[in-house]
């Protein structure tokens, strides 16, 4: 079934849109390095720069899905290497919880990824992005029908409760 779908997807020319949050000290630099090294990778990822992966509010991820992203990638420094000591651990904890929430929404786990990529790992930016694009392309567009609205209303409801 999945296979047929993926064939259908490539036939229909589906190109996923992936939003990435990269920390400025490690992964954003690694993406710059991939650039200066002229590595080629899939053009499906749009990067938002944050100071630390610990800045990534899980709601950012939900917002991205709600607004049409087919996948969300977070890139931070390797454990122990965070420029701010431990922001990446905070990000990891939130990501683990978030994965369960996404599952509840019926969003496939392949659509959300947290990766540790150091400033020296331009090659890893290339391989992670290519791998993620390939997997999300196989999954096809996100069935956002009601899920998107769900997220949006959840988010609004959540904001109403918390503010």
């Amino acid at each position: 079934m999945r296979e047929q779908q993926s064939n259908a997807n490539s036939a229909s020319g589906f190109e996923p849109r992936i939003v990435a949050f990269f920390c400025t000290w490690c992964t954003y630099l690694a993406a710059d390095l991939a650039g200066t090294s002229r590595m080629k990778y899939a053009p499906n990822v749009r990067v938002i720069r944050v100071m630390c992966s610990g800045r990534v509010d899980p709601q950012f991820v939900l917002a991205a899905f709600a607004h049409g992203a087919d996948g969300v990638l977070i890139g931070g420094c390797h454990p122990g290497d965070c420029h701010y000591q431990e922001g990446n651990y905070k990000c990891l904890r939130r990501a683990e919880l978030l994965k369960r929430v996404l599952q509840e929404f019926g969003i496939e786990p392949e659509r959300f990824r947290l990766e540790w990529i150091s400033a020296a790992e331009g090659e890893r930016v290339r391989s992670v992005i290519n791998d993620m694009v390939k997997k999300v392309r196989e999954l096809g567009p996100m069935n956002r029908g009601s899920a998107g609205e769900d997220i949006q209303s959840q988010r609004q409801a959540f904001e109403e409760v918390t503010t």
């Binding site: 100071m51 610990g54 800045r55 899980p58 607004h67 992203a69 922001g87 905070k90 918390t162 503010t163």
Partner: peptide, 27 residues
């Protein structure tokens, strides 16, 4: 680093140049 901003349940911490609204607009 902005970790507290992401942690604040009521969204009452703002990080200059990386405010929630600015990032939502970007998304």
């Amino acid at each position: 680093c902005g970790t507290c901003v992401a942690a604040c349940p009521s969204g009452s911490i703002r990080q200059n140049l990386f405010e929630d609204d600015e990032i939502y607009e970007e998304i």
